[in-house]
């Protein structure tokens, strides 16, 4: 995945069957963000693979004050890259 400066990883083991996964997102390179992130804590959240989109979560993070509106695309892309990787792995394990 391209380095957006925002890191997203699984917050717990993915057994490949759950439709809701726990993810953790944090800023690794604040210089890549347009706005100034609130603090450099890691943000844990759950993501429903079938129902939700990365853009939903990114927008909620903006509205919760974690990021500047100008960074919604970077945040959404970082989440989308990680979710795509998880789904790709799942298809390889259980085609």
């Amino acid at each position: 995945a391209e380095d957006t400066g925002v890191r997203v990883e699984l917050a717990e083991e993915d057994n490949g069957r759950k439709s809701t996964i726990a993810l953790r997102l944090w800023v690794e390179d604040p210089k890549k963000l347009k706005g100034k992130p609130k603090d450099n804590g890691a943000i844990e959240f759950t993501f429903e693979l079938e129902k939700e989109t990365p853009e939903d979560v990114a927008q909620e993070m903006i509205e919760s004050g974690f990021f500047n509106e100008s960074d919604v695309k970077i945040v959404a892309k970082s989440i989308r890259d990680r979710v795509a990787l998880i789904q790709w792995r799942r298809e390889r394990i259980r085609p």
């Binding site: 890191r7 953790r24 944090w26 690794e28 603090d39 450099n40 804590g41 890691a42 943000i43 844990e44 959240f45 759950t46 979560v57 909620e60 993070m61 509205e63 919760s64 004050g65 974690f66």
Partner: peptide, 27 residues
């Protein structure tokens, strides 16, 4: 550590925890 929690109006819970020390120093 103290885990701050923010619950968005749509109901999603965001839990803020310190970034894992090992990840910060990655090149």
């Amino acid at each position: 550590g103290l885990h701050a929690q923010v619950v968005h109006s749509a109901g999603r819970r965001f839990i803020v925890s310190p970034v894992p020390e090992s990840r910060l120093r990655e090149p």
